[in-house]
Amino acid sequence: MQQIIHFFIRNKNFLLFLLLFTISIAFTINSHTYHGNRFVSSANFISGSIFGFKSAITEYLGLKSQNEKLAKENRELRSRLLNVNPSGEVENTNPPLVVDSTYTFINAKVINNSYGRTKNQLTIDKGKKDGVVIDMGVMSPEGVVGIVSHTSSNYASVQSVLNTNSQVVAKFKKSNHFGTLVWDGKDPSILQLKEIPRIAPVGKGDTIVTDGRSTIFPEGIPIGTVSDFEIEEVGDYYRIQVKLLTDMTSLKHVYLVQRVDAPEIKALENEANDVE
């Protein structure tokens, strides 16, 4: 017994190290497996207010380009509004930004943004209080940005599409062939679209949009254009490089989107999974 106690005292630093190292690894694995239940996240009071404070100061540096972006979006929306047919139907202009009223939107500001790592996250200045919930889609005026992964009362963190854990269902605008959009961690402007079957017609410059299947994003939100493609050595699939339309390095104003009946669809899918 005495020897055991002696052993503990002699190796107390090593044991402390082992304990804390294991806790850290557990946090790391936890953050890899499922978003939403992580222990440490930037969507908390301390880091949220520090990032908010910093953003309030540095905001002015990008005002001009942000204004231009918003003005461009306004112009596009206005022109679409005036192009409404006499029959009251909206012309099928591209991109079809007019989505069904089954979606609600929240606007937010990005207060912290990362794009140089392999697991990138953003922090935004809206939280539970403003109706933000986990799994809401996040988009910029130009296209898709990411998915809400964690919320606190005033802030939320967003798993960017530039995260090797992210997977977004995407499809070709012209042919409806769909696949999964992932990121290989290399170039922050290029994503990879997988699982597009060989029979699909693919050409450089084709537009990739979101697919309504996932209930996170409305159908038809632009993501990017095909910049390069090749057929995988094994299997009958294409490996397609997609150039993002959104400049992930200069994000400021974003929209959060949620399908109103998403909880119902989720519940139904879970039920079906449980039966299996």
Binding site: N13, F17, S24, F27, S31, H32, S157
Partner: peptide, 26 residues
């Protein structure tokens, strides 16, 4: 550990900075 965890908290990286810091401290 606390130092690394603070960095992790700000950069949403799970526990990678905490693990690396604890390791070099040891």
């Amino acid at each position: 550990f606390l130092l690394g965890l603070s960095i992790d908290m700000f950069s949403d990286s799970g526990g990678i900075h905490a693990a690396a810091s604890v390791f070099i401290a040891w």
